[in-house]
Design a protein around this nucleic acid. Structure first.
Length: 433
RNA sequence: GGGUCGGUGUCCGAGUGGUUAAAGGAGGCGGUCUGUAAAAUCGUCGGUGCAAGCCUACACAAGUUCAAAUCUUGUCCGGCCCA
């Protein structure tokens, strides 16, 4: 993967079309389209995609597939991976991915709650951030066919006159079509002027790199279409806009995001992933199979039909499939075994956080107040919460319910504290106890 | 610039001087049930403390009062109308 802030990096993208495997290489255009279409929310317009694929195959020139990202630390969870995996498919078909890091769009965006302007990143910092992205994205993408660019490269060079000219290509009414703007406006919520410039800036990215396809989440519909419009306006062949649905999080309601805590990170430990995936609702299974795994759709239909497959088994299969993608088959099987042991045989997990009981917290008799211990062990956010958990019967020590909220515990190394259904910690007594 | 309305706990939203750590809903957490699913159901949700209690909290600050989320003034932020 190359990281470059120079204009020349675009030109290096003209190597010949290559395919990683015979099977993919031999796909007809229609088969390729079927593959690409899996799980998509929308492709605008589908006919253009076909035309571009045909042209690319004929000329032996890979398509430029664009994805714009915030310069904030990427939280690569399954939801984000949905888009990345689609990009990977394009790469497997021989095309080239251009990741655009919106360092400049982030700079001009000064959210109203923020009092200080974000400091301008130095080129060293920018390069360093780029490297971080490379490492993280490489978990899904093919590094050979990925280019990382920063949009300060071209947005930073725009003069005010040029910006005004660009802004003249779009009307307020057009921008206000965007659902979130329209909603906020009608609800009487504030919209800052600079926010209206966002779609324009993002659209200009597409012009700058001559994108053939722009990928994005469903929520990016408007921005991506603006790119298409602006390209047309400026005499370029307009990009195809390919939108992926937003993956619903573990709660089954809201989109998966780190801040909502309803996510599965792709770097999470296999056992943790397994547990989280088993907790999703049955209704979510088909979507997760379609968007997060490579299981062929006919198989998915059998797996998600409760008459042919027990939902529990299907869900375990789902968890194994996903874990295999990021940790390999062996880890997936191990996570499955562990899950069985803990939840079916009600044994304690093999691995769990260890908590060293501090010597000061232990009294002369070697006892600790359990509420304090729970807080120290990160099993409860506050002692009030710890008390509640105990009162409600959510805490057990070595399998025995601990019911006294004010109770003291005689600490022995190796004791297992369990809170709720799946939070465990193993105690390590202070030396000498 | 003028007028006007508003800023309450994770979110929404009641509350116009005192049994208000603040109704109700959403959501979270725990128990039961289950397939660690969903649904259902019971309980619980500021901090600290074994407890009595103490502390902090209704944008921010100052004030009136025995007593303020509630009244006054100023500041900040926002909506709407007018210019």
């Amino acid at each position: 993967m190359s990281v470059s802030t120079t204009q020349s990096s675009i030109s290096h993208s003209s190597h010949t079309l290559s395919s990683p495997s015979q099977t993919i290489g031999s796909l007809t255009i229609d088969q390729q389209i079927e593959m690409i279409a899996r799980g998509t929310f929308d492709i605008v317009p589908k006919a253009d995609l076909k035309a571009k694929l045909l042209k690319s195959a004929k000329d032996g020139k890979p398509l430029q597939i664009k994805l714009g990202l915030d310069p904030t630390a990427p939280d690569i969870h399954l939801g984000f991976a949905v888009v990345l995996r689609k990009l990977r498919q394009f790469q497997d078909l021989g095309h080239e991915v251009v990741i655009i890091i919106g360092d400049y769009t982030a700079l001009i965006g000064d959210p109203s709650g923020r009092s200080t302007t974000r400091p301008m990143l130095s080129s060293e910092e920018i390069a360093a951030n780029g490297q971080t992205y490379v490492t993280q994205l490489a978990k899904v993408l093919d590094a050979e066919k990925t280019i990382v660019r920063f949009n300060s490269e071209w947005l930073g060079k725009l003069s005010f006159a040029e910006l005004v000219n660009l802004a003249s290509k779009m009307t307020v009414a057009q921008v206000m079509q965007r659902e979130d703007f329209a909603n906020r406006f009608s609800l009487g919520q504030p919209i800052s002027l600079h926010e209206l410039l966002y779609p324009l800036a993002q659209a200009y990215d597409s012009v700058a790199i001559r994108a053939d396809v722009e990928m994005g989440g469903q929520d990016q519909t408007f921005n991506n279409l603006a790119g298409r419009a602006l390209q047309k306006e400026l005499g370029q062949e307009p990009q195809v806009v390919l939108l992926m649905p937003l993956l619903v999080g573990l709660d089954g309601v809201k989109k998966m995001s780190k801040s909502l805590g309803n996510y599965v990170g792709i770097s999470e430990a296999p056992a943790a992933m397994f547990g989280k995936l088993m907790s999703i609702s049955d209704e979510l299974m088909p979507t997760y199979f379609e968007l997060c795994t490579d299981v062929p759709m006919p198989d998915v239909r059998i797996l998600t039909d409760a008459d042919s497959t027990h939902p529990r088994e299907a869900k375990k299969r789902l968890a194994r499939e996903i874990i295999t993608l990021y940790h390999g088959t062996a880890a997936a099987q191990a996570a499955d075994d562990e899950f069985e042991r803990v939840h079916k045989e009600h044994q304690v997990p093999e691995e769990m956080p260890e908590v060293v009981v501090s010597a000061e917290s232990v009294d002369a008799d070697g006892q600790v107040r359990l509420t304090a211990l729970l807080v120290a062990a990160n099993l409860a956010p506050s002692s009030g919460e710890a008390k509640r958990l105990i009162q409600q019967g959510g805490v057990s020590v070595d399998g025995t319910k601990f019911a006294d909220p004010a109770g003291m515990l005689l600490v022995r190394s190796g004791q297992v504290i369990k809170v709720g259904k799946n939070r465990f910690a193993r105690l390590v007594a202070p030396t000498g106890v």
